[in-house]
Design a protein around this nucleic acid. Structure first.
Lengths: 200, 200
DNA sequence: CGACACATGTAACACGTTACATGATTTG
DNA sequence: CAAATCATGTAACGTGTTACATGTGTCG
């Protein structure tokens, strides 16, 4: 939902053709994760479908230009004015995995955590090569710096969290956290009044 | 890609029916983000399609049970043995947004950042109510604690990152970072040798 | 009876991603 | 000519998510 918005925001700067849009997107996001070209045309079609962009004719060189609509401009405005809802946005894959793994009898969570930490550390080192120390000289470099920083901060947080989880696990005797499949079978039908009270 | 894996991992503990699967998932992930029931059946169909689970008959009460296959077990094993690839997994929505916004003439990135920080702070407060202080008493509570911790750490990292971005922006004169649409138009055809050298 | 939770399922959709086909143009 | 890039597009697929339809059993 963010590639789409980014492309629309770029389109808000002026008409672009597909390939150009990709170039703009890439340099504005540090080119660390280039966009597959096909996705551009894909997304443009969807933006058109939703009335946020429209085809605005062709170049003498055959470039197919696209322009934003009024509705599109309003959409960009809304996007910029409202925060990114981390909560709504998908689930935290790693958190889900560790939480589930911790409740699985016969699974050594500690091992899962170790594996993840090793991967995260490797990622952190890798990310260290990407970060831009000090003052970025131009806008492109700044974009790269900002995106790279995000990765570093996220991975660092991940590592801290993994430590925390280990602490939590350490406070419990060996595998006392495992959850067997619940044998409780809910009763069908409207819940009894006491049950409702107990659950609330 | 993680709801699917989680459900499969639970199925690895023994045959379950749909509704039961949801209950198991919810309590194992702290029930902070309950799963829509429909998604269960959806996912089960896909697991069957991929040969990782199969229908294993019905209850006398009409419950439709599902069981994991050998291939499914292998898949769970692989899942637990390999780290979650944060890199591969989608893009960082917020990072994308801020990076793009920072390069947009006519957009006040500082304002975008302020909005985001306010939302993040609110989320952090909200998350503070969810966290479980000290020792979790049972597995369910631990699961909730682990997931809640993940949120807190992620939001804290986000806030730190926002500070960092502001610092980076402060090092530049007002809006010197804005990127106009590039007027450079790439030349078609095979790149000249010098150009290739320059780009490499 | 009516409300409500349990329970199963279907159908559609969203976005992101990739693989593939096609062609024009320039360089070696 | 052959290779590589620019450029446009199509067609599928994956997961996650929601809305809806349908039915059963229980409690008030």
């Amino acid at each position: 939902m963010s590639v789409r918005q980014s492309l629309l925001a770029i389109l808000d700067q002026g008409p672009c053709y597909g390939y150009q849009l990709r170039a703009e997107f890439d340099r504005r996001t540090g080119a660390l994760r280039p966009l597959n070209v096909g996705q551009i045309y894909n997304t443009l079609d969807r933006l058109e479908r939703d009335g946020l962009a429209r085809n605005s004719g062709s170049d003498d060189q055959g470039h197919v230009y696209w322009e934003i609509t009024d509705a599109g401009r309003a959409d960009v405005r809304r996007w910029l004015d409202s925060p990114v809802a981390r909560t709504t946005t998908g689930r935290d894959e790693l958190a889900m995995k560790i939480a589930v793994a911790a409740t699985l009898p016969g699974v050594e969570v500690a091992e899962v955590i170790r594996t993840q930490r090793a991967a995260s550390l490797a990622l952190l080192e890798e990310a260290a090569d990407e970060i831009v120390p000090g003052r970025a000289t131009d806008a492109e470099e700044l974009a790269r710096a900002v995106v790279a920083d995000a990765r570093v901060f996220a991975v660092e947080a991940e590592l801290r969290w993994l430590d925390r989880v280990e602490e939590r696990l350490a406070q419990h005797p060996e595998h006392a956290l495992a959850l067997e499949l619940s044998t409780e079978r809910p009763k069908r039908g409207r819940p009894a009044r006491d049950a409702a009270v107990a659950a609330g």
